[in-house]
Design a protein around this nucleic acid. Structure first.
Length: 722
DNA sequence: AGCACGCCGACT
DNA sequence: GTCGGCGTGCTC
């Protein structure tokens, strides 16, 4: 006897789908991508149909009935569903969880997806007259007209009833504009430079077909203009565009610029957006109303009706990789999505990742270069400052302090870059050697002097700074090493006549705070800037003449295989901030390893030369992009469990052809947040072999005895091996 | 992941 | 004699 069944993916960490009976009458409504409510154990879950009604169930398995069909037309289109299926397989992650990651919260919980009509209201000429002639007793009508007159245009802000609104419209005082009639045209952009013109011609020649185009352009070379022009072409053809950016909430100017140029229909999508708005953007993308969406990595899952182009700005940025749960790379998903859709992708960066550089060199990606800065500022001169033997005061050497002095005197702005928050990374007892260890991690707590706290940057644990050593009682506690807070203080003391502004995640907690600080800096009130990564990202300081990189040493000694690549990107990005109109900036880089060959290469020949050398190293070491890696991570409170689990897991992978399985090892920082961590590294020369191995082995991991006693996860194409 | 079932310790 | 600890098993 056979029944009519649908296969449903439910949001549980299980590597399979579940079949449910459907009444024949409902079958026509159920298609791939439809949401259904289904009984699951003792619960009721929202799932997605991945196999439409089909005959089955002759083998005696018991089936349950679906509880409800939630969508009359599938919420997820065929394209997005297929993309999620690919990602689930590629990242070895349960399909149900991948699908739910692609849905905004309320739709995930089964709410109907209703696109609100975005109506705008405007006063007509008659409305303006009525505003002055309408007798005072028509209070509600008056209030409405006044609101509209004041520029309110969203329905919920009118604060009026439907009846009052209808009367105003019927009398011809208020005009309702729908999305289409309200669409604001954009304004034309500046004429492209010769270089931009050539780049645009190359991109146009490649057409609307699939192709990955690396747009490599130094800071200020006008990459955004290239994106805008290509997007304009896509919009003209009636299609939509997706722009991925690393941290949109920190770069509202990108959105502003896109809105100005492209007019209405530009939306942004990121986690800082209220849930309701995220949902509306999701639905607008699906309806084709959102013509351009600028978003962070999760925007790669938006259900575009007619996507014509994807732009990945700052493609080397690590925030494209989700670092927990479903560990995907939005850049890589974007490329695959474009490939399946047959549309182009633009990868933009001044410092492309080695993977991308490699793909460009081997001809898999097209390569477009922008070498001149639009404002024609000459590239900065980077000089290595050998600090060996020099007296360092709060991390700063005398020559650097003198340079700062000189640039301040000359009226310039100065930026000190250091990728370490806090006052000092270690608080040390000079009497007994106690060094403020974190109780939960294999790490020292960082001294934050301003807040009088010791904070662990790995787990967040905090305590007051002890006045005496907790171990021996001595009061000889000394701050060892330098963080941004210490530099800020040292410079404030040394240059009391100048304002010092520190920018790091301790001080910048919101987009507004950042905006305020940046505005202050741009207006020139703050002459000395101290900060971390935040400063390396796309902000323009027109008066900046000196950049000091306080230390390049961490990266040089770092064990992480991407440390030098990241240093090269950071140094190049930070250095790119220097230089006033027509005047080259100066960049000073302090180091104890002035002879380090890769550092020399970077400062003498630039980022591209560093990439050459790093690619040779990676090839010799058998590391990406020449091989493909996956990491099975495990952690547990019990110290012995993770390694025991990985040893048990290892045989599941060793039988797979074409995959090298290393010995399980403790993680770089073995203890973190009270958990002991370990990992098993897999390496393959061919991506397909790695995929096959993961597909065969990962679903069997939960059959292992320790599987429920550890937290395990798979990281495909891990960003770091720590 | 939930959620229940099940078998051993300190409480009313 | 029960409340509750988390080990183990299952989810169409």
């Amino acid at each position: 006897m056979s029944t009519l069944l649908v296969s449903v993916a439910v949001p549980v960490p299980l590597y399979r789908t579940f079949d449910y009976r459907v009444p024949p009458a409902l079958a026509p409504m159920l298609r791939r991508g439809s949401r259904v409510r289904v009984p699951f154990g003792r619960r009721s879950l929202v799932g997605i149909v991945v196999q439409p009604p089909h005959e089955g169930g002759a083998d005696g398995t018991e089936f349950r009935d679906i509880e409800a069909v939630l969508d009359s037309t599938p919420l997820l289109g065929a394209e997005l569903l297929a993309l999620c299926e690919w990602a689930a397989a590629y990242y070895a992650h349960p399909l149900g969880e991948v699908l739910m990651a692609a849905l905004p919260g309320r739709l995930r919980q089964g709410a109907p997806g209703e696109l609100e009509r975005r109506e705008r209201y405007a006063l007509t000429a008659a409305g303006h007259t009525a505003l002055t002639t309408l007798p005072a007793r028509y209070r509600a009508l008056r209030a409405l007209l006044e609101r509209v007159h004041a520029g309110v245009c969203a329905r919920e802000e009118l604060q009026t009833t439907a009846g009052v609104l209808r009367r105003a419209v019927e009398r011809g005082w208020i005009e309702v504009q729908t999305d289409e009639s309200a669409a604001l045209p954009g304004v034309p952009g500046p004429a492209p430079t010769d270089e931009q013109h050539a780049a645009l011609a190359a991109l146009a020649a490649a057409g609307g077909r699939f192709g990955v185009h690396l747009v490599e352009g130094v800071t200020g070379s006008g990459k955004t203009e290239i994106y805008l022009r290509r997007i304009e072409a896509v919009l003209e053809a009636g299609a939509q565009a997706l722009v991925l950016a690393p941290e949109i909430s920190l770069t509202p100017q990108l959105e502003t610029r896109f809105c100005e140029r492209l007019g209405d229909g530009v939306c942004s999508f990121h986690s800082a957006l209220p849930e309701h708005e995220r949902e509306q953007v999701w639905l607008q993308a699906r309806a084709g109303v959102a013509r351009v969406v600028i978003g962070t990595r999760s925007a790669v899952w938006l259900p575009f009706a007619q996507l014509g182009l994807i732009v990945v700005d700052e493609e080397h940025d690590t925030s494209y990789k989700q670092q927990d749960g479903f560990r995907y790379s939005a850049r890589d998903v974007a490329i695959l999505r474009a490939q399946k859709l047959g549309i182009p992708v633009l990868l933009g960066s001044a410092t492309p990742s080695l993977e991308t550089v490699h793909n460009a060199r081997t001809g898999r990606y097209h390569h477009v270069r922008l070498e001149r800065r639009v404002r024609d500022t000459p590239p900065p001169q980077v000089r290595v400052l050998d600090v060996r033997g020099l007296p360092l005061e709060h991390g700063l050497s005398p020559p650097l302090v003198q340079a700062i002095d000189r640039h301040l005197d000359a009226g310039g702005q100065v930026l000190l870059f250091l990728n370490r928050r806090g006052y000092a990374p270690v608080l040390l007892c000079h009497a007994c050697g106690w060094s403020a260890p974190c109780a939960h991690c294999d790490a020292h707590m960082t001294l934050h002097r301003g807040r009088d706290l010791l904070i662990c940057h790995h787990c967040g644990a905090q305590q007051r700074v002890p006045r005496a050593c907790p171990s021996c009682g001595a009061t000889a506690l000394i701050a060892v090493g330098t963080g941004t807070e210490r530099i800020e203080q040292a410079l404030a003391n040394r240059f009391p006549q100048h304002r010092v502004v520190r920018l790091d995640s301790d001080r910048i907690t919101s987009a507004r705070a950042l905006h305020r600080q940046l505005a202050e800096i741009r207006e020139g009130c703050a002459r000395i800037l101290v900060g971390t990564q935040i400063l390396a990202k796309g902000h323009d300081f027109p008066n900046l003449s000196l950049v000091g990189i306080v230390s390049a040493d961490q990266a040089l000694y770092g064990s992480d295989f991407r440390a030098i690549e990241r240093m090269g990107q950071l140094v190049t990005q930070v250095a790119g901030r220097a230089g006033r109109a027509g005047q080259p900036g100066e960049v000073w880089l302090q180091t104890h390893e002035p002879g380090h060959p890769l550092l020399r290469l970077l400062v003498e020949q630039g980022y591209a030369a560093l990439c050459d050398a790093l690619l040779v190293e990676r090839e010799q070491a058998g590391l990406p992009p020449y091989t493909h890696l996956a990491l099975l991570r495990a952690e547990a409170r019990a110290p012995a469990l993770p390694l025991r689990f990985l040893h048990a897991a290892r045989p599941l992978f060793t039988g797979q052809p074409g995959v090298e399985v290393f010995e399980p090892l403790p993680a770089g920082m073995e203890r973190r947040g009270g958990y002991t961590r370990a990992q098993l590294l897999l390496r393959a020369h061919r991506r397909a072999a790695l995929q096959r191995a993961l597909a065969a082995a990962v679903p069997r991991l939960d059959t292992l005895a320790d599987a429920r006693r550890v937290r395990w996860s798979i990281d495909v194409d891990p960003y770091d091996l720590m």
